[in-house]
């Protein structure tokens, strides 16, 4: 009877556990390593969380656990946009920043922490064992009191530009050192398509990039290039001995139009006396100034002899 009752109980009140399968999750890089961090600096690392099947929003939570006995490294670490955020539905990759503020009094040595990000559905499915995903990405730093200057040029190019603009060289600079640094110099030679050297430029003034960061830096030069096609031989010296060389094709296009708030139109009229007169029309602010009368509006145009506004060009009309 008891057994029968139990069976009935099971049939009426099953204790069941069912879960669904979840697609995966990954973290890149799998570990954050920097062996040349200076005390008093902030080391920044972009971290990517990726999902092959981002079909729902996930609530992400980051925990930090110091694995250095002498120092609580977790106090050094912060995150942008924060320790908690949403991994949005539909996005295969989500980027956040890990910022490590190394205290200025930190002794040289190795410091580490375990960082975990776990992500669960914003709403758990009732009555099941939900499977949550997580990733672990350890932090391993070596703090040094040595000033390390290591800059790498990753890209240099000249994009096409209007003749009215300066010539602009875009440089992607990766600072792998622990102090603010920049390439030493940049030399630029511009050739036409017949391989004639047209102009050369040089500078030692290149904007510095913060330590541990990669940034786009721009160098501008005034030029006297005509409209047309050119190529530039770019040579960037860095680290006192290294050189990055690149060839970049570009086009100097026609100058940009005059500012849209003032448009000047020159009109030439040939009179019966076969004499030229020119009139200057000024259209202000993209709209014509109108005077509305009782019966309509009158457009104000330039008259022949208005002083201070009109200038004559070419031959004057014979009186």
């Amino acid at each position: 009877m008891k057994k029968a009752a139990l069976i009935i109980l099971l049939l009426l009140f099953p204790v069941g556990f069912v879960s669904r399968a979840y697609a995966g999750m990954g973290v890149s890089p799998g570990a954050i390593i920097n062996d040349k961090v200076a005390a008093g600096t902030t080391f920044t690392q972009d971290v990517y969380i990726s999902r092959s099947d981002p079909d729902i929003n996930l609530s992400a939570e980051i925990t930090v656990e110091s694995s250095t006995d002498s120092v609580d490294v977790s106090d050094w670490v912060r995150f942008e946009p924060g320790k908690s955020f949403t991994l949005p539905k539909g996005e295969n990759q989500f980027k956040f920043k890990v910022l490590v503020d190394v205290p200025v009094d930190t002794e040289p040595g190795e410091y580490s922490a375990i960082m975990r990000l776990s992500a669960a559905p914003e709403e758990l499915q009732e009555g099941i064992v939900n499977i949550a995903q997580g990733v672990r990405f350890d932090l391993m730093l070596t703090v040094t009191d040595e000033e390390i200057r290591t800059v790498k040029v990753r890209l240099a190019q000249v994009d096409s530009f209007p003749q009215s603009d300066p010539l602009k060289v875009k440089i992607k600079v990766q600072n792998e050192g622990n102090v603010e640094d920049a390439p030493n110099s940049l030399d630029l030679s511009v050739y036409d398509l017949d391989n004639n050297l047209i102009e050369t430029y040089s500078t030692t003034s290149i904007e510095a990039v913060k330590p541990y960061e990669t940034d786009d830096v721009y160098v501008e030069f005034d030029h006297s290039l005509d409209v047309g096609d050119y190529y530039a031989e770019i040579a960037i010296n860095y680290n006192e001995k290294d050189k990055f060389v690149e060839t970049s094709y570009f086009t100097v296009t026609a100058p940009l139009d005059q500012p849209p708030d003032e448009k000047v139109v020159y009109s030439t009229v040939e009179s019966a006396d076969n004499v030229e007169k020119s009139y200057r029309y000024v259209i202000i602010g993209g709209a014509t100034v109108l005077v509305f009368g009782l019966v309509g509006y009158v457009a104000i145009t330039l008259s022949k002899e208005r002083a201070g506004v009109q200038k004559s060009h070419g031959k004057k009309k014979k009186s």
């Binding site: 139990l6 099971l10 204790v15 069941g16 999750m25 799998g30 990726s50 990733v135």
Partner: peptide, 17 residues
């Protein structure tokens, strides 16, 4: 480096007493 895993299968214990 990309440290990643996926899970296949279900934690289905069935109906238990």
């Amino acid at each position: 480096s990309l440290a990643a895993l996926s899970v296949t299968g279900t934690m289905d214990y069935g109906s238990l007493a």
